[in-house]
């Protein structure tokens, strides 16, 4: 099994738990230097010229490995990528030398308007071509391999001609990018579209997974009273997702795992507890070697 290597070998992200860095915790992290494996930031929050965000991230970066996660590149848009934004992403990467860089299989900008959500795409040849062009462009500008994250979705398109798994595998095959496997997103999408989350994980291209995300979701109901999970990153990781995560690690082996908690951000100690739980799974789960499909 060939694990994808961090493309910047001098700043690797360890196969341990990391936490999404929030301004609420800057001072406490610097004061207490918690034993956390790494941090991840949203690239867009560090695209200002100067001030506190750069001040604190620079100081924290001196002590911890860093992963940069973009949320605004709109890779799934039909329109060309915003080259100014891509250059800003490159500046963030040049400045902070992250061990991993990731973005989403989603779109968020259309006709010059930014919708600030990760919107779904139909899985067909047309979208595949567009997404691959965009990923090629990102990897050329950044001069490194990026990871693409599987989405959480609430609707499907009847214009889809491929499964999400086939779509992701085709992207990896064409562009050479890696994958960020968001296990919560798998649980959310599997519930929302009534498929088997475990089967999805089993069929996921494990050898290309460079990072895992774990976040919280909220319970809701769809139009027909069916279960609908909302990916809100506003609570602790659900037990069902912890179970799916342990299964994922048994298939993928130990992979850097991020605790994402972006809304109603809790005290630092709560995030440390979530990270400790992920670290236990990472260290105690034995890998079941399953022949790659």
């Amino acid at each position: 099994m060939s694990r994808i290597e961090n493309t910047d070998g001098s700043n690797p992200i360890p196969a341990r738990a990391g936490v999404g860095l929030k301004p609420e915790h800057y001072a406490e992290i610097l004061d207490t230097r918690p034993a956390i494996g790494w941090f991840e930031v949203h690239a867009e929050n560090y695209m200002g010229a100067g001030g506190a965000p750069h001040h604190f991230l620079t100081a924290i970066r001196e002590h911890y490995p860093l992963s940069v996660h973009g949320v605004g590149l709109s890779i799934g848009a039909d329109a060309p990528l915003d080259t100014d934004h891509l250059n800003s992403l490159k500046q963030v990467c040049d400045r902070y030398e992250p061990g991993l860089v990731s973005e989403h299989l989603a779109w968020s900008t259309h006709d010059g308007v930014y919708l600030n959500d990760l919107l779904p795409v139909p899985y067909n040849a047309e979208t595949l071509g567009r997404v691959c062009e965009h990923i090629d462009q990102v990897q050329e500008v950044l001069r490194r391999r990026m990871l693409l994250e599987n989405p959480s979705t609430y609707i499907r398109f009847d214009g889809s001609e491929m499964s999400e798994l086939d779509f992701l595998a085709a992207i990896v095959g064409r562009t050479g990018c890696g994958l960020l496997l968001d296990v919560n997103n798998v649980q959310v999408s599997a519930t929302n579209h009534a498929y088997d989350a475990v089967a999805y994980i089993d069929a996921f291209p494990h050898q290309h997974v460079g990072e895992i995300h774990l976040g919280g979701h909220a319970d809701d109901e769809g139009d027909d009273g069916e279960p609908l999970l909302i990916d809100d990153h506003g609570s602790a990781v659900a037990d069902i997702v912890w179970n799916l995560y342990a299964h994922t690690i048994s298939r993928c082996g130990p992979v850097p795992t991020l605790i994402e908690w972006d809304n109603d951000v809790p005290a630092w100690a709560v995030l440390m507890d979530e990270a400790a739980r992920a670290d236990i799974v990472l260290s105690e789960t034995s890998v079941q070697h399953v022949a790659a499909e």
Binding site: D117, Y154, F157, D158, D223, E226, L228
Partner: peptide, 26 residues
Amino acid sequence: EGIVSHLRRQPRKRFGVYRNNVYVSL
């Protein structure tokens, strides 16, 4: 048109999640 759930076409409540996400976050 073309937006579906596994149970119906043009699922208004599900689409509303995106509407809500955009507005609430902004």
